[in-house]
Simulated scan of single mutants.
Amino acid sequence: MTTDWIADVKKYAPKADETVLQNMLSTYRLVLSHPDSALVSFSDAEERKTVRESFLKKKLGLTDDDTTLDAAIKEVGAKMKDGTRNGRLAVYYLLAEKFGKLDLFR
Rank of each mutant, 00 (worst) to 15 (best):
F42L: 02
L94C: 02
F42K: 04
S41Q: 10
V51D: 02
T27G: 13
K98G: 00
T68Q: 04
K11W: 11
K49E: 04
L102P: 07
L94Q: 00
D17R: 15
L69G: 08
A72C: 09
M1L: 11
M80D: 02
K98D: 02
T63L: 09
E97C: 00
Y93S: 03
A16H: 04
K79F: 10
E46W: 08
F105R: 06
Y28E: 08
T63M: 14
R29H: 12
A90G: 05
F55P: 03
G87P: 03
M80Q: 04
H34E: 15
M1G: 10
D82F: 04
K81Y: 10
L25F: 11
K101R: 12
D64S: 13
K98T: 02
K57W: 13
T67L: 13
A96S: 06
E75Q: 08
Q22R: 15
E75K: 15
L102Q: 01
A38T: 12
F42E: 01
E18S: 07
L62P: 06
D8N: 14
K101C: 03
T19F: 05
L60A: 04
I73P: 07
A71T: 04
K10W: 09
S43P: 03
V40D: 03
V40N: 10
A7K: 11
L56H: 04
T2Q: 12
D4C: 06
G87A: 11
L60I: 08
K98E: 02
K98M: 00
K15T: 00
L21H: 09
K81L: 07
Y28H: 09
F99L: 09
M1Y: 14
R29C: 09
L32Q: 11
E47T: 10
K58M: 09
V40G: 13
N23G: 05
I6C: 07
L39R: 13
L21N: 07
D64A: 15
G100L: 01
S43M: 13
K49D: 09
Q22N: 15
L25W: 09
A90Y: 00
I6M: 03
R88S: 10
S41M: 11
G77K: 03
A71R: 03
D64Y: 13
F55N: 01
L60Q: 01
L89K: 06
T2H: 14
S54T: 07
L60P: 04
S37Q: 03
L25N: 13
L56K: 11
Y92W: 02
T2L: 15
A13W: 06
T63V: 14
P35W: 05
G61R: 12
V31K: 15
K79Q: 14
P35M: 15
L89Q: 00
F42A: 01
A45L: 07
P14W: 00
D103S: 10
Y28A: 15
D36T: 12
K79H: 13
K59A: 09
L95D: 03
S54Y: 10
M80F: 08
K101G: 01
N23V: 07
E47H: 09
F99N: 02
L62T: 07
K49L: 12
V20Y: 14
F105Y: 08
S26C: 08
M80Y: 07
K79C: 10
V9S: 06
F105C: 04
L39D: 06
G77S: 02
E97H: 01
S37V: 06
T63I: 11
L60S: 02
A78G: 04
V51R: 15
A16D: 00
L69D: 00
S54I: 06
N86K: 10
L94D: 01
T68I: 07
L56Y: 03
I73A: 14
L60D: 08
